[in-house]
């Protein structure tokens, strides 16, 4: 089964481990992530001002590419998912903006046709934008995932961190219950983990603010990490490179600020999935972590 896949810029650069592990897992589950032949950055943050037309163009452009490959598009990074889904909603529901954005798409095609043979079709919001987890649940099926598990992650206490962008705004994302989501937990249960239910799983890690005000991001991330630690999590899993970065990179700083802090590895859920599916750890790429996950996984004889 082939599914159109939008990786987004971060997964091609600083989150290659996320991209690689996701592709490996998909393969093991009989899904081929078909990367869009042409794509651009989605813009990373969805504009919250109402006069944004140019600002959603990038997102829509990618949707228009994807619509040539199928009726769905899968993505991994929470921010990409948020932007693509909301752009899709606008194109589907807001006739005025749809009209304007499509004018831009046409102009885009005209200006580029001279350079390369390249066209963008008008886009109407017809795609189903899926997060990789939704793909696992709805397209592959958790039962199929379960039967592909070769190494149950028994005894591994995993804290699933959702962050903001998968769940909010709730009316648009419709991803899961914004306050007590379970889709992530259900997946982890399928893998045999002990799921750690921690109250900070939907709180913000500080997001892009880390770029401007690192202290702010450290405080936010610290709340999350400490909360997971208090519930004795062995490992935290995320769906977003920025969350991963914030939760993982600042643990030394957290140790300075919190008495008795012990570090906890933060990995992508696809990496953990890969372990359960028995994928070679070289393909899962555990090299980019500040807090090394290998030890914890080895301790539980999972690697």
């Amino acid at each position: 089964m082939k599914i159109p896949y939008y990786p987004g810029c971060t997964l091609h650069e600083r989150a290659r481990d996320f991209d690689d592990s996701a592709r490996e897992c998909a393969m093991a589950l009989g899904v081929e992530l078909e990367e869009l032949p042409v794509w651009t950055c989605c813009g990373a943050v969805y504009p919250l001002v109402t006069d944004s037309v140019m600002d959603i163009l990038a997102g829509v452009r990618n949707l228009s590419y994807a619509s040539r490959l199928g009726d769905k598009v899968v993505t991994l990074c929470s921010f990409c998912y948020n932007v693509l889904k909301r752009c899709n909603n606008v194109m589907r529901d807001d006739a005025e903006k749809r009209e304007k954005v499509n004018l831009f798409l046409r102009a885009d095609t005209e200006s580029r046709e001279k350079i390369e043979s390249y066209t963008l079709e008008d886009y109407e919001g017809q795609l189903e934008v899926l997060h990789y987890i939704e793909m696992l649940r709805d397209v592959v099926g958790y039962d199929k995932v379960a039967s592909a598990v070769t190494k149950r992650l028994e005894g591994l206490k995993v804290a699933p961190y959702y962050g903001c962008m998968l769940l909010r705004p709730k009316k648009e994302m419709k991803f899961d219950d914004p306050e007590q989501p379970t889709i992530f937990e259900n997946l982890l249960e399928v893998l045999g983990c002990d799921v750690v239910d921690f109250p900070m799983k939907t709180e913000c890690c500080g997001g892009f603010q880390v770029v401007n005000d690192e202290e702010l991001a450290v405080s936010c991330s610290q709340n999350i990490v400490v909360s997971a630690l208090k519930r004795e999590a062995d490992i935290i899993v995320t769906t977003c490179p920025l969350c991963r970065y914030n939760l993982d990179r600042h643990q030394e700083r957290m140790a300075e600020r919190v008495d008795g802090f012990t570090s906890v590895p933060v990995i992508y859920f696809t990496q953990l999935l890969g372990v359960a599916l028995g994928i070679d750890k070289e393909h899962l790429d555990f090299t980019d972590n500040s807090v090394d996950p290998i030890n914890v996984l080895a301790e539980k004889s999972l690697l």
Binding site: G8, F208, V211, P241
Partner: peptide
Amino acid sequence: MSDAPQMGVVGALRKL
């Protein structure tokens, strides 16, 4: 120069 993920950098620049 930072090693922050691209989307964080793009996001910050767009927001701020």
